[in-house]
């Protein structure tokens, strides 16, 4: 290479010029993509509707402030009791509900985790596709709702109140994407349902896409996506920068011996 450069400096200059122009074009393309993505985010943020439920006024305000940082134009409404939360959600039909666990049923009553659990059970029954983030100081009691969480088709994220602001906002974003996240200790053993195994087999052994998987399994494509989020939660696969979620799922599924 050095020899060629020495022999023909003009060719070398041409090559570096070409490389520079390629890099500039790539950078411009990247910037354009970023601009489009930001525009899309702003557009989607403007349309977002969020309901925040917490009995502590200061906590409620802090959470709203934090969400406004990420979703500046979103319509954020609040509720401090289980009853008002149900009313707000029925009225606004939000994209995501951020719910505390210890809540009073009505104003003036004592906050109890059982009330929050009951509210979540009702929400999952009445709004099967609602995205929910449970933000609680004692999220472990949610293990009681495990069967309902598994059956829920919307996003369901358990976010401990000790999470940092950045982590909490990431979890809200995951919920909006319809993902499921439960703490590791809540997943004792690897509980895999037969339909999840079928999705893994069809995707990674037959190479089918979601639409084809849905046709083969005689279910809606949305249900296939729901199976993906469930199996990814069971395998502990969550969005990670620079990593492909489906490939990560395949790797973990092979590690666990779920597919050959």
């Amino acid at each position: 290479m050095t020899r060629a450069l020495a022999l023909d400096p003009r060719t070398s200059a041409d090559k570096s010029q070409k490389r520079r122009s390629q890099m500039t074009a790539a950078l411009a393309l990247k910037l354009e993509r970023e601009r489009r993505r930001e525009a899309q985010m702003a557009e989607s943020s403007a349309l977002k509707k969020i309901v925040v439920v917490d009995d502590h006024e200061l906590v409620l305000n802090s959470t709203v402030e934090a969400l406004k940082q990420q979703y500046a134009d979103a319509q954020i409404t609040t509720a401090q009791t289980a009853a008002s939360a149900l009313a707000q959600i029925a009225q606004t039909q939000p994209d995501v509900a951020v719910v505390d666990l210890a809540l009073p049923e009505q104003a003036g009553q004592t906050s109890r985790p059982e009330t929050g659990l009951h509210l979540l059970r009702t929400l999952m029954q009445q709004y099967p596709t609602l995205n929910i983030v449970v933000q609680s100081a004692n999220a472990k009691s949610l293990v009681r709702l495990k069967p309902a969480i598994n059956a829920h088709e919307g996003g369901f994220i358990i976010a401990d109140k000790s999470l940092s602001l950045k982590e909490m906002l990431t979890k809200v974003e995951w919920a909006m994407q319809g993902l499921v996240f439960t703490p590791k200790e809540m997943r004792t053993g690897l509980e895999i349902k037969p339909e999840w195994l079928e999705v893994l087999r069809l995707a990674f052994q037959e190479g089918l896409q979601d639409k084809a998987i849905a046709e083969r399994m005689s279910v809606a494509e949305r249900t296939v996506r729901h199976y993906w989020t469930q199996v990814q939660d069971a395998l502990g696969v969550y969005p990670d920068t620079g990593k492909n979620n489906r490939i990560q799922t395949e790797i973990r599924a092979r590690e666990e011996g779920l597919i050959d």
């Binding site: 502590h56 200061l58 906590v59 802090s62 959470t63 402030e65 934090a66 940082q69 210890a102 906050s111 985790p113 100081a137 004692n138 109140k161 000790s162 940092s164 602001l165």
Partner: peptide, 21 residues
């Protein structure tokens, strides 16, 4: 335990968010 979770733990949550924001 519920008193701790509903009281001081919530306060630290607010303090932390204030510091972060």
């Amino acid at each position: 335990a519920e008193q701790v979770r509903n009281g001081p733990l919530q306060e630290t949550f607010v303090m932390r968010r204030q510091l972060e924001m």
